[in-house]
Computed example of a mutant assay.
Amino acid sequence: MLKKKTSVLIVSADGNPNKKIQIPTFLLSYWKHIAFSFTTVVLLGVVGIVYFVNHRNEKRYAEVYLEKIDKLRKRNQQLTLDDASKQVNIDDVRRSINNFDSTLNRINAKMKKRGLKALAINNAGGPIVEDDGNLEELAKYYVNMLEDVENRLDGAPFGRPHSGRITSRYGYRGNPFTGGGREKHSGIDFKGRTGESIKATAKGTVIFAGYKGGYGNLVAVRHANGYETRYAHLSRIRVKRGQRIDVGTTVGLLGSTGRSTGPHLHYEVLQGGRTINPEKYFQF
């Protein structure tokens, strides 16, 4: 097929023969088909190269994207765990704050029984909160502080046993019967009406409940830390010896028994067996 050749005369621009070459007749007869096939092969090669390059880039981009997606997934999981941990901490703090509130409410109830103003704690001077991690410790601090206040309040005779006007204070005074001389008044007298309730100012144990000389009908209560309170001149006694009582328990009714000039309550506070001025305990 390639042995049969055809002479081709190459003519210059001025029409003169310049050169003659021989080309296989097959190429002249099928040059269109050959050119088309060659072009097709070249195009297919180019397309293949483009496809290969694009495929390689897509694979590389896919790996990068998958890596980023994996990092985002792990970050999201960590954030979820952190949120869960923070929620647990918040729940712990909320429980501590609820304990704080309940303790404060108990204290204020006891303050009310004593005729004292409710306890309000603002800027109490606790530990400084530098970050969220200290919130639980702060709540524990306040709860412990309030529990300590509550324990002290339970064992000390704070407040007034009766709301009446004070007619005679602690210390030396003139003799109320003769009007002359001076005598030591070991407590405070509250004016009132016969039959009005007399309240205990602290929890404790009744160590005396009966008639005792100038005190008349007397109730004596022993408290924590060496405290003792006495409620004298009662018209009626409402507790028994050995009975454990709480703050606000009615120990008796106001009267005028014993060495008394009229209906009133004689109230004493002792510590270590010695009388002290009850008015020191009228404010918390």
Results as ranks from 00 to 15, higher is better:
residue 6 T to R: 15
residue 8 V to L: 14
residue 10 I to G: 02
residue 11 V to W: 06
residue 17 P to A: 15
residue 24 P to F: 07
residue 37 S to V: 15
residue 42 V to G: 02
residue 54 N to Y: 07
residue 55 H to I: 00
residue 56 R to W: 00
residue 59 K to Y: 05
residue 69 I to N: 05
residue 70 D to P: 00
residue 72 L to I: 04
residue 76 N to H: 08
residue 78 Q to L: 13
residue 78 Q to I: 13
residue 86 K to G: 05
residue 86 K to C: 10
residue 87 Q to W: 01
residue 96 S to R: 11
residue 114 R to N: 07
residue 114 R to F: 03
residue 115 G to A: 03
residue 127 P to W: 04
residue 128 I to V: 14
residue 128 I to F: 04
residue 133 G to A: 13
residue 143 V to Q: 10
residue 146 L to N: 14
residue 156 A to F: 06
residue 160 R to M: 05
residue 165 R to P: 07
residue 179 G to T: 06
residue 184 K to H: 15
residue 185 H to W: 09
residue 185 H to V: 13
residue 187 G to E: 12
residue 201 T to L: 14
residue 202 A to F: 00
residue 203 K to I: 07
residue 203 K to M: 10
residue 205 T to D: 09
residue 205 T to Y: 11
residue 209 A to M: 08
residue 215 Y to A: 10
residue 216 G to I: 06
residue 217 N to S: 04
residue 217 N to R: 04
residue 223 H to V: 08
residue 224 A to Q: 07
residue 224 A to R: 11
residue 227 Y to L: 03
residue 231 Y to V: 03
residue 235 S to I: 02
residue 239 V to R: 13
residue 242 G to C: 10
residue 242 G to D: 09
residue 245 I to A: 07
residue 254 L to Y: 04
residue 255 G to I: 14
residue 271 Q to N: 10
residue 273 G to S: 14
residue 273 G to W: 02
residue 277 N to M: 11
residue 278 P to V: 02
residue 279 E to T: 15
residue 279 E to F: 03
residue 282 F to I: 03
residue 283 Q to E: 12
